[in-house]
Amino acid sequence: MQDDSIIKVKNVNFHYGDFKALTDINMDFEKSRVTALIGPSGCGKSTLLRLLNRMNDLIDGTRVEGEVLFEDKNIYDSNVDPVEIRRRIGMVFQKPNPFPKSIFNNIIYGPRLLGVTGKGDLRDLAEQSLRQAVLWDEVKDILGQSAMMLSGGQQQRLCIARALAMKPDVLLMDEPTSALDPISTAKIEELIEGLKKHYTIIIVTHNMQQAARISDYTGFFYLGKLIEYNLTEKLFTTPDVKQTEDYITGRFG
């Protein structure tokens, strides 16, 4: 496939204990593009996403076969530090999960542990991240207030800003708008549009219009298998596989 792919998933099988959640996945993610993962509930989208930044390591009894190449290095090699991988491949979760700290401290929590300590530097970084997440104007006067006071949509954008403050290369998003109202959803779609110049974004979504609106490529999963991986436009208009067509037209199951 594309030569400028930043992540390459090669022959990956994934097991939760005895349960095989992903079967023989081959998938390349192109740099500075938005890739959407769609498919019915339980088909393994989140599992694949969490495989890309080694979040699945945190679950006992999981097993990975195959390779996940990030900039041509297998992130599952024994000499790779998962902490470094997670710094470079950020993640935004389905439910907004800010820390019970102030807005400002949420953003600078990670960078400060990385060694960014100058007051001015941290402030600049916070402003820059909040601007990228299109939240700055709403919170610039209340940076010291608890992040728990924000609305769900604002919290989710804060979580995006918090991830961006680590200066990742890739941003993984697992149904980032499924808990939000339409206006907040629109705002987040808009900011994703703005981010894709500088970041590679991989997003799981149940909302097919959303996938069609914001992504360049789409992968359709079913029962732990990648059924079709195509240009979004192609996948949603003239899919190559019958199963994909059944799913996107709602004639599934």
Binding site: R86, K95, Y109
Partner: peptide, 20 residues
Amino acid sequence: TFREASLALGVSRWQTIFRI
């Protein structure tokens, strides 16, 4: 979710335990 949020940022396990 607090632990996940911290770990997903690329913060180590020990730092997550002691900071969050």
